[in-house]
């Protein structure tokens, strides 16, 4: 893979001195707690569904997943999700809601170009890579595990 070009050393220093740094530590902390909070809320909902509604464990988990997807898509459509993500960062990129947001945002973005060629074709514009490489790496890991006799 070719490397990206870089500014000359002296210019890199000027840029660095005049650009606020990414708040990596603060962002990580915010993401850890906000992401953790969402997961805790989802887990609470799952337990409530099992204990109060008497749903089997797997069904309860499926409902929570569906609920998280619907909520993320709804908040994306209302224009809330991207603003919240600017503050909470990776906390909102937790797998299910982040994935739902990327699909909903892409579909919304292309709604003017039609249901099929617009929203349909572009729905996995961002999330497609996750699916492709997710499947590929799952295959590779499983194959390795089988060869090692772990499965």
């Amino acid at each position: 893979m070719t490397k990206k070009p870089q500014p000359e050393r002296w210019y890199q220093e000027i840029i660095k001195a005049n650009t606020p740094p990414k708040q990596v530590f603060r962002n990580s902390l915010t993401a850890f707690f906000s992401g953790g909070l969402f997961c805790a809320l989802a887990e609470t909902a799952r337990l409530l569904l099992i204990r109060l509604a008497g749903l089997p464990e797997q069904t309860a988990a499926a409902w929570v997943t569906v609920g998280a997807i619907a909520l993320a898509a709804l908040l994306t459509g209302c224009g809330v999700y991207d603003r919240a993500a600017q503050k909470l960062g990776a906390g909102l990129a937790v797998p299910i809601s982040g994935f739902a947001n990327s699909v909903a945002a892409s579909m919304l973005e292309h709604k003017y170009e039609g249901m099929v060629l617009g929203s349909g074709c572009n729905s996995f514009k961002l999330a497609g890579a996750v699916i492709v490489f997710g499947c590929a790496s799952a295959f590779a890991v499983t194959l390795l595990a089988m060869l090692l006799g772990l499965l």
Binding site: A93, G98, N101, S106
Partner: peptide, 17 residues
């Protein structure tokens, strides 16, 4: 934004610059 970066409603965190 859609031309140059991400979809408008996509929840990515923009850097402070």
């Amino acid at each position: 934004e859609r031309q140059f970066r991400y979809p408008n409603e996509y929840g990515s965190q923009k850097p402070p610059y």
